[in-house]
Amino acid sequence: MIEIKNIKKIYKRGAEKLYALKGIDCSIEKGEFIAITGPSGSGKSTFLHIIGCLDSPTEGEVIIDGINIKNSKKKDLINIRRQKIGFVFQNFYLIPGLNIYENIALPVLFSRKKNYRKKILSLIEDLGLSHRINHKPHQLSGGEMQRVAIARALANEPEILLADEPTGSLDTENSERIFEIFRTLNNKGLTIIVATHNLDLAKKAPKVFKFKDGLLVK
C-alpha cells in the first residue's frame, strides 16, 4: 500500500546540511498497525509528514496506492490527503469556538462532501463523545480532546491514520484508552502508523519501527 524507497530529507542551515532522514526503505501493507519509536529528532515526525503528503522527501520515492508522490501535482496531493489520510497530533489542535460536531466535520467541509451528518454522529457515538456534541473544546478533558481529534481524522473515512505522539499530553489511563481505540479501528481494517515515545504502548502494536538518527534501525 505504501512503498518507501530510500527517502532522505535534508534541511540546509547556511552551508550546513542537516539530515532529518538519511535513507529509509520500507513498505507498509494495508491494515497494518505500526508503532514508530525513537528519540526526539530521530526523524519520526518527518517520516509521518512525508507519508501524510504534508512534506516531500529531498530524495527517494514514496508510492501510495500506486501513486508516486514525487510526480504528483499539488492538487492531487491535497486530494490524497483528503481521501486517504487522517492526522492526529499530540496537542490535539481543535479549533476553539467551534463545537465538537463542527470540529469533527471540518475535514468533510474541506473535501466538499455532502450528506455527512449521520456519519459524523455515528463517529461521535463510537468514540463515546455523544454527551459532548455541543460543547466547545475548552470544556473537554485532554482524553476527550484527543478522541475528538481522532474522530476528526476519521471523518473523511481515510485508509491511513497517522498519529504523531497522540498520547504525549495524556495520562496513562487515557493513553491506554486511545491505543485501545486505535486497535479497534485497526481491527476494522484501518492502517495505523503511530509515532510515540511511550515504549509500553508501542509494544502493544503488532509491528514496531525503531528510528535512530534518521535511519530505520529495526
Binding site: 491535497i78 490527503r81 497530533f89 489542535y93 479549533i95 471540518l106
Partner: peptide, 16 residues
C-alpha cells in the same frame, strides 16, 4: 497560525 496549519493538515488547500 497553528490553527490554520492544522486546517491545511486535515485537508484544506492553500486556496481554502
Amino acid at each position: 497560525t497553528s490553527e490554520i496549519g492544522i486546517m491545511r493538515a486535515i485537508g484544506a488547500s492553500k486556496f481554502d
